[in-house]
Design a binder for these strands. Structure first.
Lengths: 232, 232
DNA sequence: TGGAACAAATTGTTGAACAATCTGCGATTC
DNA sequence: GAATCGCAGATTGTTCAACAATTTGTTCCA
C-alpha cells in the first residue's frame, strides 16, 4: 500500500513536499527576499522535474510567499512599504475583532498567559528571536479566538510576510521588547472580561507598531539607496 | 511583441485563462458542486495539455473553489454544513469590523445606497437572482471599507462559496427578500455615524442568515437521503 | 455472503522538446 | 559619446508521450 503516517499516499506528495521545503528555507532566511528561484538549477538541486517545481511555485505564489513575474521567473517575496501597510490593515481588523467577538475560554486564557510568560523570559535573557517568536505566537493565538480556519490561515500568511520584512532588514533592532508589557495588559484585560478596552488597546498597539516598522523601513531604504548611489 | 491590452505577454496566460474559464463555469452553475473534473477529457475539451490544466487546478484549489483528493481527482467544491458555519464565522468577524473601523467616505455611502436601491428594485420586480446579486454586492462593499485587498479577496472567496451552496440546493426559496430592509437600516445607520449599532445589527443579521441557511440545508439533506434510500 | 486477487482506468511525476519572451551585448547612427 | 536597433543566448511557458503508483470495479473462490 505504501502509505505515510497520515494515511495519505506517498505517490501524491512530492509537489507538496517541495513546496514545504521551499517554505521552510524562506522562513529560515536561507533564501533571502528578492532572490530569484531559477527553475532549471533549483529543480536539479531538489531532485525533481521542472514541472513539479513549477506546481510547487503555484502553491507558494498563492500564499504570496513568492512573487511570480510572467516570463521573468519567480522571486522570494520582498515586502515593501505598501505590503507592510496592507499587513497592518488586515491585523487592525481581525485581531481586535477576535478580541471583541471571539470565544474566550479559560483554556485559551491559560495558553495566552503561558505565551506572555515565554516573552517575558525571552526579554529577561535578552533573546530577540525568542521574543519575536513569542510575540507572533501571541497574536496568532488571538486570531485563533475566532475559531475560523480561514482567518487563521490569513493571519499565518501575514505573519510569514512579517518575517520576510524582518529578513529584508539588515539591522533588526530591538523591536519587540517594549511590546511585551502591552501584551501582558492585553491578556489581563481579556481575563477581566474588558473586551472593548482590550480591543481598543490592541488597535493602538498595532498603530504604533506599524508606525515604528514603517519608520525603520524608511531609514533602511534611505541607507540602501545611499549605498547604491555611492556604488554607482 | 505580441502583448495583450494590459501589457502582459500572451505567452504566459493560458494557465490563468483556463482557471478563469473554469471559475466562470462553476460560478454560472454549469459545473455543479460535487461533479468530477477528469483531467484527460477536460484538457481535451479545453484544448490544453493535461499539465497546464493541472496547474489551473492548483490555482482553483487555493481558492477552495475546487477540492483535490490525492489520487482520486479534483471535484467542484460542495460546501456542506461545516463549510457554511466557517463562512459565517469569517463574515461575523470581518463585516462588523469593517463597519466599526473601516473608512466610511461619502462616496462609499452613495455606492452603498445605490446597491440598496438595486436590491429594492429587484424585490419589486420579483427577481430572486438580482436580489441575491445585490445582496452580495452590498456585503462585498462593506468589506471594501477595510481598504484591504487581502480581506477583500477572502470575502470574495467566501461569497463564491456561498454561491456554490445555493447551487447545491435544489430548491432555492426566497432567501433574500426579508433581508433587504435590514440592509436599508444598515446603510442608514452608517450614514448617521452609528457604527456600533450598525455592527451589532449586522452581527444579528448574520446570525439569523446562518441559522436559516443551515435549517434549509438540513431539510435539503434529509430530502436527498430520503431519495437515496428510496432509490436503493 | 464475504473477501482476496486481478484488470482497467485515473492520477502523479518525469524528461525532452519547442515556441515565446526577456536580457545583455555589440553595431549602427546621430 | 550617447541613444537606438537588432541579434544571439538564456529562461520561461507549454506540450507531448511515457511510466509508476493508486484507486476502482469485477471476477472468482471459499
Amino acid at each position: 500500500m505504501n502509505t505515510l503516517a497520515d494515511g495519505t499516499a506517498e505517490h501524491a506528495h512530492t509537489t507538496a513536499w517541495i513546496a514545504s521545503v521551499l517554505r521552510s528555507r524562506i522562513a529560515a532566511g536561507e533564501l533571502t527576499p528578492g532572490s530569484k528561484l531559477s527553475e532549471e538549477p533549483l529543480s536539479a538541486a531538489l531532485g525533481v522535474s521542472r514541472n513539479t517545481l513549477r506546481q510547487a511555485f503555484s502553491t507558494l505564489a498563492g500564499e504570496s510567499i513568492v512573487t511570480r513575474i510572467p516570463n521573468r521567473g519567480v522571486f522570494v517575496a520582498s515586502p515593501g512599504v505598501e505590503e507592510v501597510r496592507e499587513i497592518y490593515r488586515v491585523r487592525r481588523m481581525i485581531e481586535p475583532a477576535a478580541v471583541l467577538w471571539g470565544d474566550v475560554t479559560p483554556k485559551v486564557l491559560d495558553d495566552l498567559e503561558a505565551i506572555v510568560q515565554q516573552a517575558q523570559h525571552a526579554r529577561a535573557s535578552g533573546s530577540v528571536p525568542d521574543m519575536a517568536d513569542a510575540n507572533q505566537s501571541l497574536h496568532r493565538a488571538v486570531v485563533a479566538l475566532t475559531g475560523s480556519t480561514s482567518l487563521q490561515e490569513l493571519m499565518d500568511r501575514v505573519l510569514a510576510e512579517m518575517r520576510l520584512v524582518f529578513h529584508s532588514m539588515a539591522s533588526a533592532p530591538d523591536f519587540h521588547s517594549h511590546y511585551v508589557d502591552r501584551n501582558v495588559t492585553l491578556v489581563k484585560q481579556l481575563r477581566a472580561g474588558e473586551r472593548e478596552e482590550a480591543a481598543a488597546g490592541l488597535r493602538a498597539y498595532l498603530d504604533l507598531a506599524e508606525a515604528e516598522l514603517l519608520a525603520h523601513l524608511g531609514e533602511e531604504q534611505d541607507r540602501q539607496s545611499e549605498l547604491r548611489q555611492r556604488a554607482g
